[in-house]
Amino acid sequence: MTKLISIVTPCYNEEENVEELAAQIAATMAKLPYRYEHIFIDNHSTDRTVELIKKMASTDRRIKLIVNARNFGHIRSPFYGILQATGDACVLIASDLQDPPELIAEFIKKWEAGYKTVLATKPESEESPLMFIVRRTYYKLVARISDVPLVKNATGAGLFDKAVVDILRKVDDPYPYFRGLVCEIGFPIATVPFKQPKRKRGITKNNFYTLYDIAMLGITNHSKVPLRLMALGGFAMSILSMALAFIALAAKLLFWNRYQLGIAPIMIGMFFFASLQMLFMGLLGEYVGAIYTRVRRLPLVVELERVNFDENGQNVIGSQQEPEEARKA
């Protein structure tokens, strides 16, 4: 039987893009010798996204829909969607068309060549130069301090063999850093570089908090370096503080009448060490928060409904539905 490709698309308030995305994916897959299913996982959209996907799913059983009971965030929902894939390979692609569907053919070529993991990377981008520089700097930093080699400039889009998805199903992490997780598995990774276009329609759902969230998740999940830097930094600063204290004491004893310590150095030192302590406590808090999230063992998402899955919640694999008149005949 022809192999099945599962395409997973997380979405939230993407009514302006989902129809074009589905059409482009259908056109791309029509040129490839594979069956496919297209699973949309909606993060409780407040616009017409769910309505439009249901309309497409009513005429094409390859299009499936999972609607979350609430917005579970940009980390958990895509990962949960991947776990629902039943194909021989799973493709993750965003709903904003900034990861062009044409990349799927390139992913599959790498997969056919024997790679179990293929990631899209963006060495160039049409986004704002400042944001692009910030992202590249972050990727370089995380790659340098990570316990495992990470793929720089990965967008999150890519293809993952069934063997990779089966391993991901065994990972008990309610808040996973997916881009790092596929690197930890250890299979050789192929990359497909492309120039990321600007978003054509709609507005990005990323903001400072979501970007900070994923940045800290990448650091706390894959590196102990910050913790060790805190310990080493604290030790070094304590030695420096003791040395300065002895120097000040010696200067006062030697030049009792002429040496005035003054309040300015004391205030500067207090603010410096207080800010350093707050930085270290904040980093430590990120690690504690990550532990707390895992200990709670909450589900990745809670589903509100499914469309084009069978009564047991399993995938219904099918080709495009025939018109109702033909079925009656």
Rank of each mutant, 00 (worst) to 15 (best):
M278L: 15
A290W: 04
K252A: 10
I239A: 04
Q277S: 14
A248I: 11
I247V: 10
N257C: 00
A290H: 10
R296L: 15
R297A: 13
L261T: 06
Q277F: 14
Y287D: 08
L244P: 00
I239Q: 06
L249V: 10
M270S: 13
K252Q: 09
N257P: 00
S275A: 14
I291H: 09
M267Q: 11
M267W: 08
M242E: 03
L298W: 07
Q260V: 08
I291W: 15
L279Q: 12
L244V: 12
F255K: 07
A290C: 09
K252N: 08
S275R: 09
I268K: 09
P299S: 07
L240I: 03
A245D: 00
L284T: 13
F255Y: 10
A264M: 14
G269W: 02
Y259K: 01
L249C: 09
L249Y: 09
L283P: 00
G269Q: 06
L240Y: 01
K252M: 09
E286R: 13
A245M: 09
S275P: 00
G262Q: 06
R258D: 10
G282F: 13
G262I: 02
L283K: 01
L253S: 05
L240A: 13
A245T: 13
R296S: 02
G289E: 11
V288K: 10
K252S: 07
L298M: 06
F280T: 04
M242D: 02
A264R: 08
A274F: 15
W256C: 00
G285E: 04
G285L: 02
A251W: 00
P265K: 04
G282M: 10
A250Y: 08
P265Y: 05
E286G: 01
A274R: 08
L254A: 11
L254F: 07
F255R: 10
A251D: 05
L240K: 05
L254D: 01
A245R: 03
Q260R: 10
Y287N: 09
I239S: 00
E286Y: 09
I266A: 14
F255D: 06
F273E: 11
Y259F: 15
S238R: 02
R297I: 01
S241G: 02
A248Q: 09
A274E: 07
Q260D: 05
L298Y: 06
V288D: 07
F271Q: 07
L240W: 00
A250W: 05
Y259S: 01
A245I: 05
L284C: 03
Q260F: 03
